[in-house]
Amino acid sequence: MRWLGGAFLAWGVLAGTAWAEEEATRIGDPERGAEIFGKCASCHEVGQGAKHRVGPHLNGIFDRKVAQFEDYNYSEGIERARRDGMVWNLKNLDAYLENPKTLVSGTRMNFAGLKNKRDRDDVLAYLRQFSANPQDIPEAAPTARKREVELPPEVLAIMGDPDYGEYLSTECTTCHQVDGEYDGIPVITGWIEEDFVVAMHAYKRKIRPHPVMQMMAGRLSDEEIAALAAYFGALE
């Protein structure tokens, strides 16, 4: 466990202050993560000899493109993420663990998500040991992460104005069908509002990988995202 050595205490101290655009960082406590991984282990194996179970094995997942195993049958949602060029980097893994269906609509991973940031960090620190070169210190790109602001509770608490949302929604319905039909373009009606908000912020920050959506979300304010969530959430 050399990579938990003293150098990382210094990185940890920096975490609360301004980071450079992209910095290597200690993820979390892998030993605690090993315990939390128990929640995942009924579907996923990791480590020497790991095989696909309900979900694919997780060896070497860091910095791998999504859906790379030919001997595993992925969901359409995950396949779409692969076509969009998504990579399992730290940001995406973190977002996926927080709420799988928010990052990848249509994934079969029926897991409510780890809402606690520290839990996710620790699980990812554990998983990180089974990807290439964890002993490289300081860590290279796979675990470098851009500075990222957690969505503050007040952003999640914004009550969207559904009238404004209805107007804003007209930009969405040029592509997304209001009757909820999936026709090559994902369904956006009937989402839980918070999931919708998190997904739109993930596009806005270019964590989710689609150029049209990154552009559309990029200019929406927190209030506008909340308004859209309120409007679409109420549509069946």
Binding site: C175, D179, I185
Partner: peptide, 11 residues
């Protein structure tokens, strides 16, 4: 684009 065509014509 095929999905977009369905979406916009419905719109």
């Amino acid at each position: 684009s095929v999905g977009w065509y369905a979406g916009i014509t419905a719109d």
